[in-house]
Design a protein around this nucleic acid. Structure first.
Lengths: 254, 254
DNA sequence: TCTTATCGGTTTGTCCGACAAAGCTAGATT
DNA sequence: AATCTAGCTTTGTCGGACAAACCGATAAGA
């Protein structure tokens, strides 16, 4: 082999991938801003000089990656990847990797505590208003496990948002999505479960309002321990998420 | 509106999406296991009764989602989504959302501390061997910022792996990927930076070996604070990751 | 005048057929 | 038996085609 190679590596990616990469590059480095149109398929065909089928395959890749979407009239435009769309993929990956609820619980304990700490420090009046609104609706829904589970999910999303830390928001989302269906099972199966949940949220919101970090952390811990106790009444922490959901069918809507 | 609607919602997803959904369903619920072949495009054409172009668009969606891949001979097979492929997408999303290094730092502090706690509790002999190996190589690379940054990244991945918590492993990855390029900048710019980094890793590994959680947590904090001090010498914590990388070009290889 | 209906022109989603390149298979050759 | 070769398969790409949905603007009606 010569010291200085005569040739550089050839770039031999399939054309559809190059199309996707080219568009991605423009979005990532900001030359195309979120919301701006990408152009029609025909225009892309002309610009890249490839067939429309090829362009379309490239578009599918970007669309799935969340970098572009089609607006109401199906025209292509750049967009900010939505956290919970990406998180859905991750949640799926976690299921396929057969993670256990114990892993989920441990990680969530860390993430939710961090989230509440941030919220206590930095929640805005608007954040607090959103949380209050959620709490009011939750109080109404105590008797309805499905609704309450959804409101619980929303409460924790709002708390992460109140932390003003988007990295944290994103990091907690996959685990939270896997938690969600179990909350319904637990609230439905454990008497007083709903009331305890709302009670915990009330104290959490209160701690955020009073900027009382210690109380916030304590109630988060209690809230999650509650979940854990409830969960252990109906399933094992050490079984995989996948198997548990399989057995409690019907919890897998989308 | 009648009490019981006469008609059910129409299912009006495009065909390529239905193809992707159908295959995804089979993989998620385990009827197709990771590694198993999906079949050729022609077979899918026959099974779904749609055109090959349509099948191919569906395949692109799944491929980008990490649920299927093409093996050495380009045949389709189901696969376990790789964490760091998914994390790459999340990192990209974080960049587009213009997160700041402050957010990154705060979230990483939480995640790395949790990771080391898990490692102290549950690291296996093999985990420790991997970490030792990494440490030895790092000691060799003290003078080489690029290599050392890569080894640092690997060290933290190995520590997360040693925590035996896959949810945590996945949750920390996106933030870690954004950290990585800065480590090189810091080690290159701060004298003694490399030595301090290796020193911190040595103490971390030691704490894991001795199952000394307190020391592990303390050294993780110190390690990250070191990063932060180094970082603040060359850039501002409150600027977005995107802008910082733009200015320090060349750190964006892939 | 304001609303509604209509009618081309675009654009997307899908289909058909085709072909070169690369991989695989199995029979032919040494 | 190991190797080579020719044929078959599969993927990546291309060109063209068409129905349905959508857009914009104009014409008709209240």
């Amino acid at each position: 082999m010569p010291a200085t190679p005569l040739f550089r590596r050839l770039d031999v990616a399939p054309a559809y991938q190059k199309v996707a990469d080219a568009i991605e590059r423009e979005i990532i480095n900001g030359r195309i801003k979120p919301g701006e149109p990408i152009g029609t398929e025909q225009q892309l065909v002309e610009q890249f000089g490839v067939n429309r089928s090829t362009v379309r395959e490239g578009i599918r890749v970007l669309e799935e990656g969340g970098l572009i979407r089609r607006d109401s009239s199906r025209r292509l435009q750049a967009c900010l990847p939505r956290y919970n769309k990406l998180a859905t993929r991750l949640s799926r990956a976690l299921i396929l990797h057969e993670v256990t609820f114990r892993e989920l619980f441990e990680a969530s304990m860390t993430l939710e505590v961090a989230s509440v700490e941030g919220a206590v420090e930095r929640a805005t009046a608007e954040n607090i208003a959103e949380l209050s609104d959620n709490l009011a609706r939750s109080a109404q829904a105590v008797g309805n496990p499905a609704d309450l589970a959804e409101l619980d999910q929303e409460f924790h999303v709002l708390m992460a948002k109140a932390s003003q830390n988007r990295v944290l928001q994103l990091a907690r989302e996959p685990a939270a999505q896997l938690f969600f269906p179990t909350t319904e099972m637990i609230v439905a199966g454990v008497p007083e479960g709903g009331a305890r949940l709302v009670e915990a949220h009330r104290h959490l919101l209160d701690a955020i309002k009073r900027r009382d970090k210690e109380a916030g952390v304590a109630w988060t811990r209690r809230h999650l321990q509650d979940w854990r106790r409830g969960f252990e009444k109906i399933a094992s922490l050490d079984r995989s998420v996948e198997h548990t959901y399989m057995e409690h069918a019907g919890a897998t809507r989308q």
